[in-house]
């Protein structure tokens, strides 16, 4: 079933795709650094008047929960990545590699970059999982 991005439904679908991915199970098996949150910053031009938060509880190749969250909850995750809607869309469509997005300032990370780099394979696998979610982008709906 198609899910609008960003939404709670999309986040839950993302979690299901992650848990169905043999690639992520393998490449993320050493991830023990805690939850990751994503913030899509408000984009009034497409009707998103507030920032949207997503929370993924990732551990050893498994997504233990995936849901939308408040900004306060997102702030509590050891890793919080924030970006404008358009850059998230590029990540999901595979045209923006996540770490390159961080280095070039399109994605902003609160947390320890070196940990992300050590698990670069898992990060890339997550991006590939995001691309597999049946997505309706809010500006194209």
């Amino acid at each position: 079933m198609s899910q609008k991005f960003p939404s709670d439904g999309w986040t839950q679908s993302f979690g299901r795709v992650i848990n169905a991915s043999a690639d992520y199970k393998q490449r993320g098996k050493n991830w023990r650094a805690g939850a990751v949150s994503f913030i899509v910053t408000a984009a009034p031009e497409i009707g998103m008047t507030q920032d949207f938060g997503m929370f993924l509880d990732l551990h050893e190749g498994e997504c233990r929960s995936a849901r939308s969250c408040t900004l306060a909850e997102a702030e509590k995750a050891p890793f919080m990545i924030r970006a404008e809607y358009g850059w998230w869309k590029s990540v999901i469509r595979g045209s923006l590699e996540p770490v390159r997005g961080l280095i070039t300032g399109k994605l902003k990370l609160k947390g320890d970059l070196t940990v992300i780099v050590r698990h670069i394979g898992a990060a890339k696998s997550l991006a590939e999982c995001a691309a597999q979610v049946d997505t309706i982008f809010q500006d194209e709906a």
Binding site: R82, L102, G105, L107, K108, L109, K110, G111, L113
Partner: peptide
């Protein structure tokens, strides 16, 4: 602390 501000472009 500077520890509170570690990250990438935040």
């Amino acid at each position: 602390s500077i520890r509170d501000h570690m990250g990438v472009n935040i």
